[in-house]
Every structure is written in structure tokens, then in C-alpha cells.
């Protein structure tokens, strides 16, 4: 039994979630403040992976980062960076693909906070950054946790986009969902069952943890 797909999947989901948390908090804050044309465009781009077939996103990433041409060739020649068929490529694709799951809950929680909370903090002489860290963030804690879990769980289940940009290289890009598909193709139902069961148990445990954490707020992870 090869455990590397499970390890690789957890590593991919962990790194993606951390990166998206770093990117997502300021981005969600920016999007939650006011409305402008550029924000609408940004929101559309961030939301696209929700409705776009993963293979479409994967295809364009494959073209964009192909070492044979354009930007991918430039990255490869000047920085020796290759995103196609590599783990960093999987991370990049996962960050783009899972972005709406991190941004959505945080942005909507920030929008639901009364504007007067920030205003009260400003009248106390606090900057927007201090206000965000000391007032806004602590009051959307459950939504941030929901966003983290959704992002992690969604990355665990990625298939199409990962297959397109990463392929199926054992130990490098073969994540659990691809290993399941591969095992079924080879009629190895026992391995497919082990991978599937593990993904099921991990996902069940983290979603359950969120329900327990948020029980006082009576929120489901999808809120």
C-alpha cells in the first residue's frame, strides 16, 4: 500500500489553506469595503472557479505555465521554476481553485458586522489595521474557521484541475483523488477503498469539528 498520495494530499491542502489565509484576509477585507467596478471584476475572477469546469481552469494553467512557450518558458529560463507537472504547480492551481471558499465566508462575515464597530474604533484613534486585528477579526472568528475548513476540505477533493496541471506522477503530483481513480482503472478496488475511506474519515472529522466549535453560534460550515 502506497501512503504517499494521502501524505501529498494533506500537504497540498495544508499549504494551500495557509497561503489562502494569508492572501484571503486582506483581500476579503478590501472586497467588503464599498463597491467599485474594479472590485466587481476582482470578485467575478475569484468566484469563477465555483462555476467553471476544473478542466478548463487546469487547461489554461497548463497553457500559461508550459515551459515550451510564453510565461512558463520565461519562468523556466530565468528562474528555473516549473509549475507544470510539479508540486508547486499543484499548489498554484489549488490556491486559484479554492480561493472562493476562503474569501466568500470571510467577506460576507465582515459585511455583516455593523459599520459602527469600525467607526467606534477609529474615534478611539485606532488605524484600520489595528481595528481589523483587534475588533473585526475576533468578531468573525467562526467564519474564518469555516473558511479554513472549507478550503482544506475542498482541496482534499480536487481532481480535474490537479490532473490537468500535475498529471499523475507518484510521490510528486499523485494526490489521493487521482490515486483512487488510478486504482479503479487498474481494478485495484482494495487500494481505492482505503484511499476513499481515509478521505471520508478525514473530511468527516474536520467538518464535525467545525460543527462542534460553532454549536453556540448554530452555524453550519456552509453558512
Amino acid at each position: 500500500m502506497d501512503w504517499s498520495p494521502i501524505w501529498l494530499t494533506l500537504r497540498l491542502a495544508g499549504i494551500t489553506t495557509i497561503l489562502l489565509l494569508i492572501i484571503g484576509l486582506p483581500l476579503a477585507y478590501w472586497l467588503s469595503n464599498g463597491r467599485s467596478f474594479i472590485k466587481i471584476i476582482a470578485e467575478v475572477i475569484i468566484t469563477m472557479p465555483l462555476v467553471l469546469p476544473p478542466s478548463v481552469l487546469g487547461f489554461y494553467l497548463l497553457i500559461a505555465f508550459s515551459p515550451q512557450q510564453g510565461f512558463g518558458k520565461w519562468l523556466s529560463e530565468h528562474f528555473n521554476i516549473q509549475f507544470v507537472f510539479s508540486f508547486p504547480g499543484l499548489v498554484l492551481a489549488s490556491v486559484i481553485y479554492s480561493m472562493p471558499f476562503m474569501i466568500g465566508p470571510i467577506k460576507s462575515a465582515l459585511q455583516q458586522l455593523p459599520l459602527s464597530l469600525s467607526q467606534a474604533s477609529y474615534t478611539l484613534g485606532k488605524t484600520p489595521m489595528q481595528t481589523f486585528i483587534k475588533v473585526l477579526l475576533p468578531n468573525i472568528r467562526s467564519s474564518v474557521l469555516t473558511a479554513i475548513v472549507l478550503t482544506f476540505a475542498h482541496t482534499l477533493g480536487e481532481f480535474g484541475v490537479v490532473l490537468m496541471i500535475g498529471g499523475n506522477i507518484p510521490g510528486v503530483t499523485r494526490v489521493a483523488s487521482i490515486a483512487i481513480y488510478d486504482a479503479v482503472e487498474n481494478m485495484d478496488y482494495a487500494s481505492a477503498n482505503v484511499y476513499s475511506l481515509l478521505l471520508f474519515v478525514i473530511t468527516f472529522a474536520i467538518v464535525m469539528a467545525v460543527f462542534i466549535f460553532n454549536k453556540h453560534a448554530a452555524k453550519s460550515p456552509l453558512e
Binding site: P114, S116, L117, Q119, A120, S121, Y122, T123, G125, K126, T127, V135, P138, N139
Partner: peptide
């Protein structure tokens, strides 16, 4: 606003729940 040295009591109090 931070430089005006103003104190404000909001109608809805605007207390910080955390």
C-alpha cells in the same frame, strides 16, 4: 477621524462583542 480627538457615543452603542 483618528486625528480629530473626538469621542463618540453611538446610538446603537457600537460596543465590541469580543
Amino acid at each position: 477621524v483618528q486625528k480629530r480627538g473626538v469621542g463618540m457615543v453611538f446610538q446603537n452603542y457600537a460596543l465590541f462583542p469580543n
